[in-house]
Computed example of a mutant assay.
Amino acid sequence: MAVVHEIHQLSRLNRWTQTISAFIDVTKPKILMMLSFTSLCAAFVAQRGIPSKFVIFAMLLSASLSAGGSAAINMWYDRDIDGLMERTAKRPIPAGVIHPSSVLRFGIVLGVLSVVIAFFFVNPLTALLNAVGYFYYAVVYTMWLKRRTPQNIVIGGGAGAFPILIGWASVMNSLNVTAWLMFLVIFLWTPPHSWALALYKNNEYTKAGIPMMPVVKGPRSTKIQSLMYMALLFLCSIVLYISGNFNTFYLAGAIMFNSALLYCTWRMWKEKDHLFIWAKRTFICSLFYILGVFSAMVIGII
Rank of each mutant, 00 (worst) to 15 (best):
Ser52Glu: 07
Met33Leu: 15
Pro191Ser: 01
Phe183Ser: 05
Cys285Asn: 14
Met33Cys: 12
Leu60Asp: 00
Met228Pro: 07
Glu271Met: 13
Ile108Ser: 00
Ser174Ala: 15
Ile302Ser: 14
Ala71Glu: 01
Leu165Cys: 07
Phe183Cys: 07
Ser36Ile: 13
Val154His: 05
Phe106Gln: 06
Pro51Glu: 08
His274Thr: 15
Ala198Arg: 00
Pro219His: 12
Gln18Cys: 11
Ile98Trp: 09
Gly253Tyr: 00
Trp278Arg: 06
Pro214Ala: 08
Tyr289Cys: 01
Thr88Ile: 11
Phe135Thr: 15
Leu261Gln: 09
Ser226Asp: 01
Leu61Tyr: 09
Thr126Ala: 10
Ile155Val: 15
Asn173Tyr: 06
Asn74Met: 05
Gln151Thr: 09
Ile31Phe: 10
Asp80Leu: 14
Trp195Glu: 03
Ile302Cys: 09
Leu232Met: 15
Thr17Met: 11
Ala254Tyr: 00
Leu129Phe: 08
Met143Ile: 13
Pro100Asp: 11
Ser21Leu: 14
Leu240Phe: 05
Ile81Glu: 09
Phe187Ile: 04
Ser243Pro: 04
Ala179Leu: 03
Val140Gly: 05
Ala46Thr: 00
Ile117Phe: 02
Tyr77Ile: 14
Glu204Val: 07
Val132Lys: 03
Ala231Glu: 01
Val177Pro: 08
Leu61Met: 11
Ile277Phe: 10
Leu275Asn: 12
Ile284Tyr: 13
Ile210Gly: 01
Gln47Val: 07
Ile50Tyr: 14
Ser170Arg: 10
Tyr289Trp: 12
Asp78Arg: 04
Gly167Asp: 01
Ala169Leu: 10
Gln225Pro: 09
Leu275Phe: 10
Arg281Ile: 05
Asn176Met: 06
Ser21Val: 12
Phe276Gln: 08
Ile153Gln: 01
Leu232Val: 06
Tyr229Lys: 00
Arg91Pro: 01
Ser70Gly: 05
Leu261Gly: 04
Ser52Asn: 07
Ser21Pro: 08
Leu235Pro: 02
Asp25Met: 15
Lys28Asp: 03
Leu235Gly: 08
Met172Asn: 13
Pro94Asp: 07
Leu175Arg: 04
Leu35Pro: 02
Val115Asn: 05
His99Asn: 14
Gly209Lys: 12
Asp80Gly: 08
Val171Leu: 05
Phe283Thr: 00
Ser70Asp: 10
Gly107Phe: 06
Pro51Phe: 01
Ala58Asp: 10
Met34Asn: 11
Gly107Val: 12
Met59Asn: 10
Asn14Gln: 15
Val171Phe: 07
Ile224Thr: 11
Val132Glu: 03
Leu13Asn: 14
Leu240Lys: 00
Cys285Glu: 12
Thr222Gly: 05
Leu125Trp: 04
Gln47Trp: 05
Ser221Cys: 10
Trp180Asn: 11
Phe257Thr: 01
Gly158Met: 06
Ser21Thr: 14
Val115His: 01
Thr126Leu: 02
Ala196Ile: 02
Ile242Val: 15
Ala89Cys: 13
Leu199Phe: 05
Ser174Arg: 15
Phe54Gly: 11
Met1Lys: 13
Asn123Gly: 06
Val140Asn: 08
Ser11His: 11
Thr88Ser: 10
Tyr137Pro: 11
Gln225Glu: 12
Cys236Arg: 04
Leu113Gly: 09
Ser62His: 03
Ala179Glu: 03
Gly156Gln: 03
Trp278His: 10
Ala95Arg: 12
Ser70Gln: 02
